[in-house]
Amino acid sequence: MKAANYIDPGQIEMRGDATRPVPAAGEVLVAVEACGICGSDLHMYRNDSYRDRLARKTPEGYEVPGHEFAGRIAELGEGVTGWEVGERVVGVTGLGGGMADYVTVPVNPYQLVRVPEGVSFVEAATTEPMADGLQMVRKAAIQRQENVVVFGVGIIGLGVIQAIRAQGIEAGRIVAIDVQQARLEKALEIGATDVVNARDGDVFAAVAAICGTEEGYRGISANVPVIFDCAGYIAHMSGPPPLETALRLVSLTGGRIICFGGFEGAMTIDMGPIIQKEPVIMGSNGYAPEELVQALDLMRTGKVDRRTLISHRFPLAEISDAFEMQCQPQAVKVVLDIRDQVAA
């Protein structure tokens, strides 16, 4: 079968001689139609971060990334009931494998879910990151008219904005922060009220001008009770990590910072505001099973448009070009058409 092979940072290729996997008991084999390139895949591609968690080895030794994908069930493993060959499904794997003609997926509500009619495979391939956004918004418990900041508006941060809007949450200002103008423009298109390009100057001053400031014995803050850090720490980027800026921005009382973005190694950060402001800092890793279903239902009903976030599509044979494009400033979400074109 055809499969991606991650070799080293900056090196990925397609192989045409990989062994087709066989589903174990409790698994199904999925014939993949579309697979997204995730931000975590880019961390690996840049500097080998998370390699042991993101690439599944074939018997030939090929390392196959891809953990967010959609396709059809091609085979049932022993003991699998309630599923049929040919069903359209979203698969999520903890150890890659989705950038290939076929991948095995355990049958459980965290990793396998049916795709409803009216949702294409290319949309469905973005289900997992949409569910991630739904969980982050659930954890944040945004109250009426609370201002929100989203650091990093790739597919995850944009999904956070879509989740807020689709659920009718009456937030105050929703400020998107990024260094790529194309992503900021997309954030405005899907529901952000304001954008800040971090390359343009002091982020604190820009956000404070939008949301106002607070001052008291705890210090000075912007009026931002809720912050989503979907950027994490990218080692080659200059300036303080987004989490440090988030701690400066977050409200003097009752602040919540939800952290999702990956970290490319250790970093130095000023932690003083944690003591001064007593914010709650929550990690978010994944989603509840019902949020996978909810994400697909939001697509089915048209409450979110995931197609607008897919900026580029490549066949698997051009996987090196696809990864290079995902690294470019004009790219929002790159999806691989595993079988050359994505069927409905």
Rank of each mutant, 00 (worst) to 15 (best):
L134M: 08
V280G: 02
G86I: 04
L252Y: 05
Q111W: 01
V342M: 13
V122Q: 10
T19W: 03
V122D: 14
M99L: 11
G172E: 14
V332S: 06
A4T: 12
I73L: 05
I210S: 07
L76Y: 02
A171V: 07
G157N: 13
A317L: 04
E324R: 06
G36T: 13
V85D: 01
R183C: 10
Q294W: 09
K57H: 13
A70T: 07
E27D: 15
Q162S: 14
N223E: 11
L134K: 02
I177P: 11
G118I: 10
E75Y: 00
T245H: 06
F260P: 00
F151T: 13
Y287A: 03
A176V: 14
H67P: 15
I338C: 07
V89K: 04
V196K: 00
I156Y: 08
S49Y: 09
K139T: 15
L298P: 03
E146Y: 01
L76F: 03
V32P: 14
R218M: 11
V92W: 00
L112G: 04
K277H: 11
V107D: 00
A209H: 13
G283A: 06
Y50F: 15
V332H: 02
Y102M: 03
A317R: 04
L247Q: 12
K303Y: 05
I37K: 01
A266S: 05
A266C: 02
A25K: 13
E87Q: 13
Y102F: 15
R173L: 09
V113I: 11
N147Q: 13
A163L: 07
V28G: 07
E324P: 00
I319H: 01
E87P: 06
D132F: 05
N47W: 07
G262T: 01
E215N: 04
A171M: 09
